[in-house]
């Protein structure tokens, strides 16, 4: 929601978030290396760094994948979600350091092109010769694409649905990395604890996605909606808290029915920024405020307050005996609609 793009739209919260994130990462790398050296004094610095950065990246990837569904289930996770892109870029950087040290240690210095060597050094079909490094490389390519397009410039110029589709490739990267770990390090580190950690991570990621998916499905199913003169009866005004919204499905997507200052306005539920759920946000300083990154819209027009330019579709609305009736046909994004007053 920036008039002119900057490298990072810093604020006090983001600074604190990044400080904590990188303090945590550096602490993890230091502890992992120290413990690794204590348990195996023969381990070289390269091996320790490869394993420390690799495990840190995998751990962060699990965090990244869990925080989305966790925030849908419990709003206390929203502050972690707020700056998730920095966590993602940090995870990519750790993966990149891991890959560079691997290439320098195992693939450089020979006649063969080091990148080609990643693909041909393990190219068999048995467990011991499975090309696990190729899977790691392909996962890194996906993570690069995601990190490279993480700036808001790309969101605006690819549009949120295309950007989100591109970033859904993280699940492909996750699958590749599971293969990379199972056929790679777990073939030499046979302690069952390592496999158990990976399984716990997988169960956590899939479990949280299934739980939040079931909740979202129930939301979309909704109740039987009465249609009168083309308007849909969505709920009674008393069913919505002040400065909050009720989310219902209309015309193939969700809408947010906001109650504020004795008025009702209805807008499309998807924020133009990252398609965050506006209806789960609040009415703050005269604006509907997205819970994900704080993008704001005026409820009557669906437009971001000047000088910002984001716009979302609005819906005609009226009240009959306290019931909120919404015209299911959307107005073009940014169209002014008189709120229903009670």
């Amino acid at each position: 929601m920036s008039v002119s793009y900057q490298a990072v739209g810093w604020n006090a919260f983001k600074k604190k978030y990044d400080l904590l994130l990188w303090a945590g990462i550096l602490l993890y790398l230091a502890i992992f290396s120290a413990v690794g050296l204590a348990l195996n004094p023969a381990a070289t610095a390269e091996i320790l760094l490869i394993r420390a950065t690799g495990t840190a990246a995998i751990f962060l990837l699990h965090m990244i994948l869990c925080v989305g569904p966790a925030a849908r289930l419990d709003k206390r996770w929203l502050p972690v979600l707020y700056n998730r892109r920095h966590m993602g870029v940090s995870m990519f950087l750790l993966g990149l350091i891991h890959a560079v040290i691997v290439v320098l240690t195992y693939h450089a210095g020979a006649d063969l092109n080091p990148v080609l060597s990643i693909f041909v050094s393990d190219a068999g079909s048995t467990v011991g010769t499975f090309p696990f490094q190729a899977f790691g490389f392909l996962a890194l390519v996906i993570l690069f694409l995601m990190a490279a397009t993480s700036h808001d410039f790309w969101l605006a110029n690819l549009t949120a649905p295309v950007w989100k589709t591109l970033h859904m490739l993280v699940y492909v990267a996750y699958a590749f990395l599971i293969v990379h770990v199972v056929f790679g390090v777990l073939q030499s580190e046979t302690h069952p604890g390592y496999l158990a950690l990976l399984v716990v991570g997988f169960v956590l990621v899939t479990g949280l996605h299934l739980l939040s998916g079931a909740r979202e499905k129930a939301l979309d199913r909704g109740r039987d909606q009465d249609v009168a003169e083309g308007y849909v009866d969505v709920c009674h005004i008393d069913e919505i808290e002040d400065n909050r919204a009720r989310i219902v499905s209309l015309s193939g997507e969700r809408v947010a029915v906001f109650k504020y200052e004795g008025k009702i306005s209805v807008v499309s539920n998807a924020c133009q920024h990252q398609n965050g759920p506006l209806g789960e946000g609040k009415f703050v300083d005269g604006c509907i405020t997205c819970p994900w990154h704080g993008f704001q819209y005026l409820p009557e027009t669906g437009q971001s307050p000047p000088p910002f330019t984001e716009k979302i579709p609005t819906f005609n609305v009226k009240l009959e005996a306290g019931r909120i009736l919404v015209d299911p046909v959307p107005n073009p994004a940014g169209t002014r609609v008189e709120p229903a007053v009670f």
Binding site: S251, G252, P313, V329, P330, N331, P332, A333
Partner: peptide, 8 residues
């Protein structure tokens, strides 16, 4: 999106 396509 569905709403933008369906808009009047």
């Amino acid at each position: 999106s569905a709403h933008r396509r369906a808009a009047r």
